[in-house]
Design a protein around this nucleic acid. Structure first.
Lengths: 160, 160
DNA sequence: CACTTATATTTAGTCGACTAACTAATTTTT
DNA sequence: AAAAATTAGTTAGTCGACTAAATATAAGTG
């Protein structure tokens, strides 16, 4: 069955996305007891380091849209991990805080995610990790340049 | 602004997911003229190689749930890229085929995706790519083992 | 043959991610 | 001071991905 074709694939991005998908699924399994979904740890971590950030600040840091942050925070309010309070000086601004429940969940999430990270890099040396880091950043830069060229192209009247 | 902290991050998986997110966004920009969404190329490619596969077969190959395949195919039927026909021998089975429009879109998508892949790996040597492939497969295997251990744990009566 | 079990797909609901449009508050301009 | 522009967040809608339950069809059993 072609379930195994990750081992035959020449496409690195294919392997990458399969690996990331599996990782995400493992995150899900790991976090189920904490009522935390796979997309939420980055937000939890951010709030633990930046108590009371506005939604705009959160969105910028996590590179998400404001709409996504609103929806996520709303859900996390619902599970009791987060609370939002209006800024005293500016009624447009909403600031997010971890609740006690949120902090509790967070420490377990931190532990779980660290554990996962260690498992993920089993049998991979520090040197190899360093090389991979360099290559990934190169890829990121390449994609950033590519994005720029696409967006520039988009603004051209004579595009295509 | 901490938008730049990908360059400071020690977490490879963080860098990985940021890079993959950016890539996906670029795929989106590239495919907008073809009425194709970033999740659809794998399914289009599969159908071009396996004309008439059942939804179950598609789901197994792409490692998606049947529900996801149903919803995706329905959307692609709507845009006219795909048509579904019942199997003549078994009324439970639905088989998917590319339309002419789908084939047309596919060839442009193929071109675009190849172009993107080339851009992604600029300034990275063949040797480096080989190493990265090995490391990614190792990570995949690690995550696979981890998943197994989690699922085994899940079936234990005395878990946690 | 009737009933039970298995199979393939669908539907409804959840999540995160985006876009576009909207709402309310604040700042800037006239 | 009033109007216009900007800002922060929200809502509605789209996508893909999953889960659980439902539906229709086929296979197996007594």
């Amino acid at each position: 069955m072609e379930r195994q074709d990750i081992y035959e694939s020449e496409s690195l991005t294919f392997i990458l996305s399969r690996m990331m998908k599996l990782r995400r699924s493992n995150v899900h399994l790991l976090l189920r007891d904490q009522e935390v979904y796979p997309g939420q740890p980055p937000l939890l971590f951010h709030l633990s380091r930046h108590e009371g950030h506005s939604q705009k600040e959160i969105a910028q840091h996590l590179q998400l849209t404001p709409a996504t942050v609103t929806v996520m925070l709303k859900r996390m309010e619902k599970t009791g991990h987060v609370e939002r309070r209006p800024d005293p000086q500016d009624q447009r601004i909403s600031r997010a805080y971890l609740t006690d429940k949120g902090r509790e969940a967070l420490s377990e999430v931190k532990e779980a995610m660290n554990f996962l990270e260690i498992q993920c890099f089993q049998h991979i040396s520090e040197e190899e990790k360093r090389m991979m880091r360099r290559l990934l950043l190169q890829m990121y830069d390449n994609m950033k340049s590519f994005e720029q060229s696409l967006l520039t192209e988009k603004d051209q009247p004579n595009r295509k």
